[in-house]
């Protein structure tokens, strides 16, 4: 391939070929490009606010779900609340008071006697 001959052919071709696309096609393509660019700009502008809002919604939903089972189970399972109170009571310190005064004050007298019953109804 001779470079000079090819260059001459290319030069002559460029002088002769003068066709151009129609204005209608230009408008359509440029409009599509502008729309795409605008969408890109909008997506960039709303990226951080949208991400922040999504994070808040996610956090709120996760937080809400973590608390939901207690109420939901209490509502759905009959006796759930009573069982829970019983479990809490079982975990409490239930050692009986050692002194009589303490027993009297807490009202946990083990053997009720008649004298006391009369004196302190």
């Amino acid at each position: 391939m001779s470079e000079d001959v090819m260059d001459d052919l290319v030069r002559l071709y460029r002088q002769s070929a003068r066709e151009a696309p129609t204005e209608r096609i230009d408008t359509r393509i440029l409009r599509a490009a502008a729309t795409q660019a605008k969408l890109h700009r909008l997506s960039r502008r709303w990226l951080w606010p949208t991400a922040a809002a999504a994070s808040i919604v996610l956090w709120a939903s996760v937080h809400g779900l973590s608390q939901a089972p207690q109420g939901a189970a209490g509502e759905l399972m009959p006796g759930y609340g009573a069982g829970r109170i019983r479990a809490d009571l079982l975990q409490m310190d239930v050692k009986p008071p050692t002194s009589d005064v303490a027993r009297y004050l807490t009202g946990t007298a083990i053997v009720p006697d008649d004298e006391n019953k009369e004196t302190f109804p």
Partner: peptide, 17 residues
């Protein structure tokens, strides 16, 4: 790519024909 439509117009004008 960063959203500048004018840059596309220049590219288009250069290569359309």
């Amino acid at each position: 790519r960063q959203g500048d439509a004018q840059a596309f117009r220049i590219l288009y004008a250069r290569h359309r024909e």
